[in-house]
Simulated scan of single mutants.
Amino acid sequence: MIWDITGIGAVSSIGGDPEEIFAALCAGRSGLAELRAFDRGRFRATRAYEIDDRPASGLDEPGRATRWLCAAIRQALDGAGLDHDLTGIPVLVGTTFREQRSAELWWRGRAPLEPAGLYFGPALRSEFGASVTYTPASACAASLYGLAMATDLIALGLAETAVVAGTDAIPESAFGAIDRVQNRTPQALRPLDRDRSGMLMGEGAVAVVVRAADGHGGPVAGRVRGVGVNCDGHHATRPSGASIGRVIRDAHGRAGVKADDIDLVMLHGTGTPLNDVTEMAALAEVFAGREALPYVTAIKSMTGHTCGGSGLLSLVTALLAIRRGRIPPIAGLVSPIDEAAGFGIPVGCVTGAELRTVQVDAFGFGGLNAVAVVEGATP
Rank of each mutant, 00 (worst) to 15 (best):
P186E: 10
E127M: 12
R326Y: 06
G166C: 10
T351R: 14
L59H: 08
A103H: 13
V206Y: 04
D195T: 12
A65D: 12
S197E: 14
H216A: 15
L35D: 04
A23R: 14
G63C: 04
G342R: 06
R40F: 01
G342V: 03
L313T: 14
L153N: 01
M266Q: 14
G253R: 13
F363Q: 01
V360L: 10
A205W: 08
G256L: 08
V257R: 13
E19W: 07
I330W: 00
T135M: 10
L105I: 13
G376M: 11
D53G: 14
D195R: 15
R180Y: 11
R196W: 14
F363P: 03
A221L: 01
A56K: 14
L320H: 13
A24D: 06
G245A: 13
L156M: 09
V132S: 09
A259S: 14
T237D: 01
V93A: 07
T237H: 01
A150C: 06
S126R: 15
P336T: 10
A321T: 07
I178K: 00
L124E: 03
V373S: 05
R29F: 13
D179T: 02
I154R: 01
V210S: 05
T357S: 08
L25P: 13
A177L: 14
R223G: 02
N369H: 13
L105Y: 08
L267R: 01
A123Y: 07
E285M: 01
S126I: 04
A139S: 13
A259N: 02
G269M: 09
R254S: 05
L313W: 07
T306A: 11
G146A: 11
A123T: 09
I154E: 04
V11I: 15
Q187I: 08
P112F: 09
A251C: 09
R238C: 09
D52G: 03
L86F: 10
L312T: 08
C307S: 07
C231N: 10
L320R: 15
I21H: 04
V206D: 03
H252G: 00
T167D: 03
V229K: 00
L124F: 11
V229I: 15
D261K: 01
V206L: 06
Y295N: 01
G253L: 05
Q187K: 07
H252R: 02
V350E: 12
S310C: 15
V265P: 05
G31H: 02
R246H: 12
T167W: 03
G204Q: 08
G16S: 13
D78L: 04
D338R: 12
S197P: 00
G58N: 10
G63V: 06
T306V: 14
